[in-house]
């Protein structure tokens, strides 16, 4: 309990710092296929009309971090201008067989596996340059993974403000409540990046926490 309170305190002071800036660089993190790029595309399309990058059901579609600068979000009178960084999915293992199972040739699969690995290292490096993180999780999946636990623990250690986007709530088997139970110390918004469900609540939280 004490630990959780301390963490919360850290966050609110960090949020305040960002609040004063009204400008924040936010990274979108999470495991492969959680919907990070889908979310980045939606945010950028909703507020600028552009797109961010390719989305695919094949994991590790994003293998280089991409940044979009100057995305201004306004909600409930709060306003924040964000640099948004979409990052490659974090994983503890990348194996080319995974890509071959999706029908890719061996050479292409090996190339992708190497790029995905480099992408994970790049994503980790970006953490040093961020003011906050949106952690995207697939709410149809068990949130207690090594990736989620490790990443959240590290962000807490860095006092990096964190907002959890419990994605894919359009799917019947989704359970954002399971994520909330797993990581109760962080603000969470259930969303569907795909169909836009509850996305306004996310913008509200972003403007409130990062703006």
């Amino acid at each position: 309990m004490g630990l959780i309170n301390k963490v919360k305190l850290n966050f609110s002071s960090m949020f305040k710092k960002i609040f004063n800036k009204k400008k924040a660089r936010i990274g979108i993190y999470g495991p492969p296929n959680a919907g990070k790029t889908t979310l980045a595309n939606r945010i950028i399309r909703d507020w600028t009309g552009d797109a961010m990058g390719a989305v695919s059901s094949v994991p590790h579609e994003t293998r280089r971090a991409r940044r979009r600068e100057g995305v201004t979000i306004e909600s409930n009178g709060s306003k924040v201008t964000l640099d948004i960084v979409d990052t490659p999915g974090l994983a503890t293992k990348v194996d080319f067989h995974e890509f071959m199972a999706h029908g890719l040739e061996e050479d292409e699969s090996k190339r992708r596996a190497k790029e995905a690995t480099e992408g994970i290292i790049e994503a980790v490096k970006w953490l040093d340059d961020l003011d906050g993180v949106i952690l995207v999780m697939d709410s149809t999946e068990d949130p207690f993974t090594q990736v989620n636990v490790t990443v959240i623990g590290n962000m807490e250690a860095r006092s990096l403000p964190l907002l959890i986007a419990a994605n894919k709530v359009d799917l019947p088997e989704s359970s954002p409540a399971r994520i909330r139970t797993a990581f109760p110390q962080h603000p969470l918004v259930p969303i569907s990046a795909l169909d836009g469900q509850n996305i306004d609540s996310l913008y509200e939280k972003i403007a409130q926490h990062f703006g």
Partner: peptide
């Protein structure tokens, strides 16, 4: 922090990558 088992097969120690100053 990173082990290459064979070309195209990698294992990452995320904790080490996140925490250590060296890879």
């Amino acid at each position: 922090s990173l082990r290459i088992n064979e070309p195209g097969s990698y294992e990452l120690n995320l904790e080490a990558l996140l925490e250590r100053k060296e890879i």
